[in-house]
Design a protein around this nucleic acid. Sequence first.
DNA 1: CACTATCCTGACAATTTTTGTCAGTATGCT
DNA 2: AGCATACTGACAAAAATTGTCAGGATAGTG
Lengths: 232, 232
Amino acid sequence: MKRADRLFQIVNFLQGRRMAVTAERIADEFDISMRTVYRDIRDLITTGVPINGEAGVGYMLDKSYYLPPMTFDVEELEVLMLGAAMVSSWTDKDMSVSARTLIKKVRNALSERDRETFEGIALFAPPSRARLPWAINFSDLRKAVRKKEKLILDYADEQGRATERTIRPLSLVFMGPVWMMLGWCELRSDFRNFRLDRMQKVTHTGELFEDTPETALQTYLDSMGICDGLKL
Amino acid sequence: MKRADRLFQIVNFLQGRRMAVTAERIADEFDISMRTVYRDIRDLITTGVPINGEAGVGYMLDKSYYLPPMTFDVEELEVLMLGAAMVSSWTDKDMSVSARTLIKKVRNALSERDRETFEGIALFAPPSRARLPWAINFSDLRKAVRKKEKLILDYADEQGRATERTIRPLSLVFMGPVWMMLGWCELRSDFRNFRLDRMQKVTHTGELFEDTPETALQTYLDSMGICDGLKL
DNA sequence: CACTATCCTGACAATTTTTGTCAGTATGCT
DNA sequence: AGCATACTGACAAAAATTGTCAGGATAGTG
């Protein structure tokens, strides 16, 4: 089991690096010869790990997440499939595509026999009347949450008055058919929820923020008495 | 890579069997000695596969699904997390628990560094006003879809009239804040959608059904012109 | 262009891991 | 008690992995 283990660790070693890594560097790290590194990389690639090698440069791993073998029970796998299907129907094009890829990947990994079990378990028809159109892009918001990038929001409030605010995006909240973004509003110096369907325009500032005790997501959750039940 | 492969196949071999399988049987199947089987099983168990061995009986695998190592990109993993969170908030207690377990399992499989990326991406507050209470159990329906078990439904239609029908549950559909069950209604000999919040009682008949060309999910989808966009 | 840094491959012996054999113990079932 | 089976340790046999060496190929650079 030594080799299988090392393969996993090599991926980990490659993960999250900006610069290419040479075979020599890897050989050094794991105390193996370069020849073995080449063999390991070859095997990783054939099992689907997106490593790119370039002569004269080194190895780069596409930004990806390598999960070790895992066992799920039927419920967990059903959550995965159901969840991906919900996301596919209720977010935007980009995520919908990813959701489908995810479902396909997982389905393909199952045995023939098991695949049927998860046929048609869930199906989703987001009724157009319930789903208000967005002027903005869901994925942009998601990325901003992930990167902790401040956004400038052109927003129409409940009375339809347009405002422009700088916010720190903290989380996305799904309320029935409506998506909201929870953010720290720099104008009001407080937490605010913004409906995605009321956002007119989102401008990326490129400016990143750090969580402070006052502006962190956890603070908001605590203040709302949300401890575990709803928080992810 | 031969061993790692065989380990995976052994799990597959064990999967979906009612009777215990002896080491001898496995040894035979894979052309290896029993000693090796014992070693393989030991290693599988230490990597978390839920195999139970009993002296005098053989091996049994808890009903579970073993996924091989897989790579996901950031979007796919986000779909997984987001989806599980949605399921956790929008279904019932049982699935909610499974969703949390799923999220924990996947998080634990990620490296320290990556774990942070998926912190607080999404958070869900199912507003109680939008979520109508159910008299029945979501998980029961899910299981019936999976098993293809006919159900007897006490249902209140739009005018509030109570009816009792035998249906073949085909799929669960999430429409905004409302869940529906799509089924083939034996009373009307046609497809019908039933809102979960209008179901008064669900009786399990124990009777299983086979899809026929007339009653299959695919037929319904085709008739609705749903081809790919919404189907899972 | 030549040069460097690197990826990549084949062959084969050295090394390490896996496997089989054997001998024995432990445990659940009838 | 007797049987069927899981399980373990020791050690030699077999197989896989690894290192070494001797190349070839290719991207980037002066």
